[in-house]
Design a protein around this nucleic acid. Structure first.
Length: 591
RNA sequence: GCGGGUAUAGCUUAAUGGUAAAGCGCCAGCCUUCCAAGCUGGCCACGCGGGUUCGAUUCCCGCUACCCGCUCCA
């Protein structure tokens, strides 16, 4: 990487431009003027994405005994989205503040008192201006000058750099209109007039069935996870697994993002890689193991243990996922954000965001949430189909408990319910009913959910790999060299194969032979045009880690070098002389 | 969705009220014994729609996309 911090906007523009030029990522539907918030992967992007997808799939299921794969459809019964809460949280009636454009739920606006003030517009010394009417509530007891200052600040914030300093914004045509005592038409914080109430649906609607009536409405899934929950029982019943175990899935998901931005980072169609890892409730662990392991810094997370509760499992998955990112070359750009109790959704016990440094800022790549039994319980209620599992070890262990020991567990849980920060405590009768099922060996599994975005991962890998250096030759002529320093494991093309010269048929024939040798084992690229240096440079831009060159020594010009080739490394420009018979093994050892 | 900006070849830029220039790249040929060499030739562009005008890439209006803010959080 270069030493100087590049301008982030220019840096992104270069990356977008390279992605298009080299066939990683194109704007969707470009010949028709594009299509907002969707992007297509070209030949190199498709390979890169496939490598990442396969690395994830291998790490999550093939390399493990306790995780199974699933490939569910994008279209599902819309009842799933009601049960999961998406229909409600993704489709509120929203009103938008005319001053700041902030949105509030229409049914959540509290009545306010104050004086309604109007301005005909605003302008700034920078030449910036707006000429639409601005209506703002001056709250009861607010001083007129602090009110004006506040309005200037809000306008300035919304206008961004164009308006210059907020204190230099001039408010035009101020006038008082009316005094209100209990109005729900103003934003609770900014005081800006709220626009019309309108539905704000983040899910993409579609019709399942050719008649396309309202009865046929369903949604393109906004996340892949719900299919895993909906198929939980089928997987459990057909796979001879025991809790703890996981189900993972890779697939497309869709959200009508308000503002798609930052290239592919926030897209309306995107690919998720999600794991739902089902675990016993802590109470079950305690009954079986006599204790629940507590997390402490430096605790051993290498091998799952029977006494792990949700906290240890959560830490374990953060650790596992970190190792995954290290393996694809992103280890040194990661950051972690542990959500505070205030950030967390009411059903979540903990959530860690794994963030990655992009030119446009440090943004989330993956979220790892401990979601309790929320999801399966919600589906159990909505579908009226039991999502419980039976755990024989639990039943046997519970049978050995004394009534006092059982009551102690119940009391401990009741106390925990009372201490909840968010959400209502579970009523005592429900807690007792739940324990009754538990003591018989029945429970709805809890879940740890590592959920990653594949497109974000691909963008992170590209942004991390992007490197530009200025090279000056002997004659003082300098040019900018662009290299994508992908980890060989994810690089779209693994190896370039080049005859040193094109007009020597022996070299070309030998090079085609080497190409044919490697091609069945890895994605290779044969190139005989232009000078050898240019061919290396082309592959550098594509991020190809190795180049193999066939020269006259390969043909035996120096007898001791017969059947050897030059392997050139992208990052160091180092060259190695390798026997053709050993070439495949040499490369495979480095991928 | 709101506010600000941008839109000329694959990429980066230029010029112009009379339909466009260059560099790089790409393709073909010649040449070339290891890091974007050279020569010759070639392909390729005014985002879309309307208006003003004899004539618009240029001026005006709409649309779309992208970038920067507000919101979203895989």
């Amino acid at each position: 990487m270069s030493d100087t911090k590049p301008d982030p906007i220019a840096q992104m523009e270069k990356i977008v431009s390279l992605c298009k030029r080299r066939g990683f990522i194109y704007p969707s539907s470009e010949i028709y003027g594009g299509c907002g918030g969707v992007w297509d992967y070209g030949p190199l992007g498709a390979e890169l994405k496939r490598n990442l997808r396969e690395a994830w799939w291998r790490a999550m299921t093939r390399d493990r005994e306790d995780i199974l794969g699933l490939d569910a459809c994008i279209l599902m019964n819309p009842a799933i989205w009601k049960a999961s809460g998406h229909v409600d949280t993704f489709a509120d009636m929203m009103r938008e503040c005319s001053l700041t454009n902030k949105r509030v739920r229409a049914d959540h606006v509290e009545a306010q008192a104050g004086t309604v003030m109007q301005f005909t517009g605003a302008k700034a010394a920078t030449g910036w201006s707006i000429s639409r009417q601005i209506t703002v509530l001056m709250k009861q007891g607010e001083h007129i000058e602090s009110f004006r200052k506040r309005v200037r600040a809000l306008i300035g914030q919304n206008a961004g750099a164009a308006a210059g300093k907020p204190e230099e914004i001039e408010l035009l045509g101020e006038q008082k209109t009316e005094v209100v005592t209990a109005s729900v038409d103003f934003h609770p914080e900014s005081g800006g007039l709220l626009g019309e109430s309108r539905p704000f649906n983040l899910m993409l609607r579609t019709y399942l069935g050719p008649t396309a009536t309202e009865a046929d409405v369903t949604y393109l899934r906004p996340e892949t996870a719900q299919a895993i929950f909906a198929q939980f029982k089928n997987v459990f019943d057909s796979s001879r697994v025991k809790v703890p175990f996981g189900i993972c899935q890779i697939g497309k998901a869709f959200r009508n993002e308000v503002t798609p931005k930052n290239f592919t980072f926030r897209s309306r169609e995107f690919e998720q890689m999600e794991l739902e890892f089902f675990i016993k409730p802590d109470e079950a662990v305690e009954i079986i193991s006599g204790e629940v392991a507590k997390w402490s810094d430096g605790a051993d997370l290498s091998e799952p243990q029977p006494n792990w509760g949700w906290e240890m499992w959560h830490r374990y998955w953060v650790d596992q996922r970190t190792k995954f990112y290290q393996n694809i070359g992103l280890g040194d750009v990661l950051e972690y954000y542990w959500q505070t109790p205030a950030d967390l959704a009411h059903y979540a016990r903990a959530c860690v965001d794994i963030l990655c440094e992009f030119p446009f800022g440090t943004e989330e790549l993956e979220g790892i949430a401990a979601r309790g039994a929320f999801d399966l319980t919600a589906h159990q209620q909505a579908s009226t189909k039991s999502q419980e599992v039976f755990d024989e070890d639990l039943k046997n262990a519970a049978a050995k408990l004394t009534p006092e020991q059982k009551e102690a567990l119940i009391q401990k849980r009741l106390a925990a319910e009372q201490a909840k920060v968010k959400g209502e405590p579970m009523p005592e009768a429900d807690v007792r009913a739940w324990f009754e099922r538990l003591f018989k060996g029945n429970y709805v599994p809890h879940v740890i959910e590592p959920s990653a975005g594949l497109d974000r991962m691909a963008l992170a890998v590209i942004a991390k790999a992007f490197d530009e250096t200025v090279k000056t030759d002997d004659k003082g002529k300098s040019e900018t060299i662009t290299v994508l320093r992908f980890h060989p494991r994810v690089a779209p093309i693994k190896c370039g194969v080049f005859p040193l010269l094109k007009n020597k048929p022996e070299l070309v024939a030998k090079a085609r032979e080497v190409y044919a040798l490697l091609k069945p084992h890895m994605n290779c690229f044969y190139d005989e045009t232009a000078s050898i240096g240019r061919r290396y440079a082309r592959q550098d831009e594509a991020g190809t880690p190795f180049g193999v060159t066939i020269d006259f020594d390969t043909l035996g010009e120096k007898p001791e070098l017969l059947n050897t080739v030059t392997v050139r490394e992208r990052d160091s420009n180092a060259q190695h002389r390798i026997q053709i018979s050993e070439l495949l093994g040499w490369l495979q050892a480095r991928l």
